[in-house]
Amino acid sequence: MAIGTGCTARPGKSRNNKTGSWRVFRPEFINEKCTSCGMCRIICPEGCIGENEEGLPVPDYDYCKGCGLCAEECPSEAIEMKKEEK
């Protein structure tokens, strides 16, 4: 059958929905101020902040909705919200 029998789906399918297009403000990560505490990664409702080898946060702008929670909660003010330029 071509469609998921009984309306089912396999993991990973939500990634087809690039919620980054919702964004009005964009979080800019200031690595110099970052202490790698991980707060932004823990609280991001999209789960779209990863980390690089140095432990610095790497946002996935394909999915970031620009809610600003990470910037608001960052204890070292290392994230700034900037108006998205389209």
Binding site: M1, I3, T5, C7, T8, A9, R10, P11
Partner: peptide, 20 residues
């Protein structure tokens, strides 16, 4: 072997599920 059961279907798919 994870699978999601019981998704909701918008108008673009609902009819097809009923048809099946």
């Amino acid at each position: 072997d994870p699978i999601s059961f019981g998704l909701f279907a918008a108008p673009d798919y609902y009819t097809e599920f009923r048809y099946e």
